[in-house]
Computed example of a mutant assay.
Amino acid sequence: MTGLWARLFGRDPVPDHVAENLEPSEAVVATATVSGGGTLVVTSWGVWPPSGARIGWHEIGKATWDGTSLAVTPTVAEQIAPGIELLTDVRPHRFRPADPRTLPQAVQDRVTQSIRTRNRRELPGGGAWVLQRKVPGRDGLVVQVRPDPGTDPAAVRRLAEGIADRLPGGGTD
């Protein structure tokens, strides 16, 4: 998008590395120049950090806005069985948009919209969220188990494996 068109639509230009890698059905929703340089791009499929690849909505454990900075916490997924993932949070990415406009709300809305169902399970040492999430560009849902920090890892694994065993064709072999 040229600078003129970007300004008419109220967003910063989309960097070439993002524009060249967008999926055909992926739409740009919001952009913002961030401190330290670069542009944060929000699409219908995920968040594109200024220097990096897309983080899909289903790969974000949480996103928070404190009025000046956006923190996006990605997750790493371990496949327990087909369609069942055990998530681990990794270090949050922090962005300070110069002019956030609609960016924080766009991120919050899309993280929330990726979740179709959520259930809380109390476990030794904490608990875990069991989520059914939509993965952009794919049919169906993935079940994700996201434990709280400090929750007994063995209890979390038993929970995820138990869910896999109850699904049709389930089982962790």
Rank of each mutant, 00 (worst) to 15 (best):
167 L>P: 02
16 D>N: 08
151 T>C: 15
42 V>I: 04
126 G>K: 07
24 P>Y: 11
136 P>K: 07
8 L>E: 06
18 V>S: 00
168 P>C: 06
135 V>S: 02
105 Q>K: 04
51 S>A: 06
39 T>P: 15
4 L>A: 08
18 V>K: 00
25 S>W: 04
4 L>D: 14
112 T>H: 10
131 L>I: 05
26 E>S: 02
18 V>T: 01
140 G>P: 14
55 I>G: 08
165 D>C: 01
60 I>R: 00
117 T>V: 09
1 M>V: 11
133 R>N: 01
43 T>M: 04
169 G>V: 02
105 Q>I: 01
89 D>S: 06
59 E>M: 08
62 K>E: 09
104 P>M: 10
113 Q>I: 00
132 Q>R: 10
78 E>F: 07
56 G>L: 14
77 A>K: 07
87 L>P: 01
30 A>Y: 00
92 P>H: 07
23 E>R: 09
69 S>P: 00
168 P>D: 07
19 A>V: 10
141 L>Y: 09
136 P>D: 07
22 L>T: 10
106 A>K: 15
32 A>L: 13
98 A>H: 13
153 P>N: 13
159 L>M: 05
117 T>A: 15
124 P>I: 13
21 N>I: 00
148 D>F: 15
137 G>A: 06
145 V>R: 09
37 G>N: 05
13 P>C: 01
86 L>D: 04
44 S>C: 07
19 A>H: 14
76 V>P: 01
65 W>G: 11
24 P>W: 14
6 A>W: 01
66 D>K: 09
21 N>E: 10
100 P>D: 12
167 L>K: 00
149 P>T: 12
109 D>G: 00
169 G>E: 01
146 R>Q: 12
83 G>T: 04
45 W>K: 02
107 V>A: 10
6 A>P: 03
10 G>S: 07
153 P>K: 11
71 A>G: 14
14 V>P: 11
156 V>S: 09
12 D>L: 01
7 R>G: 05
59 E>K: 10
28 V>I: 05
162 G>A: 08
158 R>Y: 05
109 D>A: 04
50 P>T: 03
55 I>N: 03
111 V>C: 09
73 T>L: 15
23 E>F: 11
88 T>I: 05
147 P>G: 02
72 V>I: 07
148 D>W: 15
118 R>Y: 05
101 R>M: 04
81 A>N: 02
154 A>M: 15
111 V>A: 13
159 L>E: 10
33 T>N: 10
103 L>C: 11
85 E>P: 02
56 G>P: 03
167 L>D: 00
96 R>I: 10
120 R>Q: 13
101 R>Q: 06
36 G>L: 09
